[in-house]
Design a protein around this nucleic acid. Sequence first.
DNA 1: ATAAAAATATGATATTTATCAGTTTATACC
DNA 2: GGTATAAACTGATAAATATCATATTTTTAT
Lengths: 229, 229
Amino acid sequence: MESRCENCIIRQFNSLRAMSKEELKTVSDSKTTKIIKKGQPLFEEGDKLNGVYCVRNGVSKLSKLSANGKDQIVKLATKGEVLGQRSVIAEESTNLSAIAVSDMEVCFIPKESITHTLQRNPNFTLEVLRHMAHDLKEADDVIVNISQKTVKQRVAEAFLYLRNNFGEDKDGFLALTLSREDISNVVGTATESAIRIISEFKKKGLIHTSGKKIGIKDERKLIEMVEGF
Amino acid sequence: MESRCENCIIRQFNSLRAMSKEELKTVSDSKTTKIIKKGQPLFEEGDKLNGVYCVRNGVSKLSKLSANGKDQIVKLATKGEVLGQRSVIAEESTNLSAIAVSDMEVCFIPKESITHTLQRNPNFTLEVLRHMAHDLKEADDVIVNISQKTVKQRVAEAFLYLRNNFGEDKDGFLALTLSREDISNVVGTATESAIRIISEFKKKGLIHTSGKKIGIKDERKLIEMVEGF
DNA sequence: ATAAAAATATGATATTTATCAGTTTATACC
DNA sequence: GGTATAAACTGATAAATATCATATTTTTAT
């Protein structure tokens, strides 16, 4: 199931699309495809990365460990996203861990092909820059959300975010199933608090659950809650 | 007091140093120098920016208004930093307001000279990318801090940050004096809470104050507090 | 299929933080 | 220099959230 980057559709969603044919060929020749099982790390905080990971399938959480031993999930990355770029560009060890929250298929691209292109192809560099500018804006939004919204609002927002970005299955449950602990780490709260709020939402008919699966039942009310009614 | 970018030392601290002589000349010919009084905005959230601001002197807060009417300060930018880059690069209106917290001298550089260079000079683009990668890392740290540390820890950290980045005056007060409200907006808490904590720190001998000026008295204990003792 | 382990759930309580109301102190303006 | 205005401060209280203890359910491994 080895395939060429030149034919990979995923590329259309990320900065690799700004590469020239030859550059892409080099990348394709040097890349290796990996299967990462749910729960396994792509890399861990502090690692020196020798390349970047292009996500072909599945979802990874990007998180950072705090002094008190809790993880904070900073971003959920899916198909098309390139992980580890920041570290390779800044030439420093990574500040985040990347752990699969579903089975993943990723391509590892050694940093040389990336840095080489960064130094020569301004279109590519600019494209990477645009993506990073977008990430930075999102990070600003997260900061404001965490500091100004209540835990309840943030949980509601997380569910809407999960549906908008990962969709639903046939039964109306969020396609990406996270553990309660992961949810609390996205939201930035204690696991028990997240669980309590999930129970409350369920009681109020905003969501329905089945095991760890969660489905959105009353989108309007969730949106109202996020906006502060 | 009109001067040329070619001779400006500030440039050494930011991505403009990666520009060629000719590019720098173009920038210099098109730039305008502005004096911004404390409290005045460079730009406001939602503005479409026609260029970037290179800070020659003074400090600006970058903040975002939340739904409940409180500002969250995301970053404090000083000498050498270039503001508005993200917006110009992504070609979208800015997500942050920039307001002077001390008198400032800035150079406004029309976006054309920036985008033109971005498309042609990969060194420059890469340099901008490196700076943005750094900002993104810092933003991640802020997210983790806000969500995992107590308000007390964050206030302590803010004081240490202010000293490390802006220094002290002859009397041992933080060189950058922020209002209590600004401090609370950096920390992400209610103004009264910040004030209460400042009083407490003073009582415990961790800091000393004079009017709105604050000085660090016991650095070790502040550091211990940040780390959770 | 069953035991063991892990995740989810709930209650009781403690702690942290926000809010509201009011006072004092500093700052700006005529 | 004196008054108006805003900022800083303090207390009382309410609300939000974390923590600890424990029960229940689900998952995993044998």
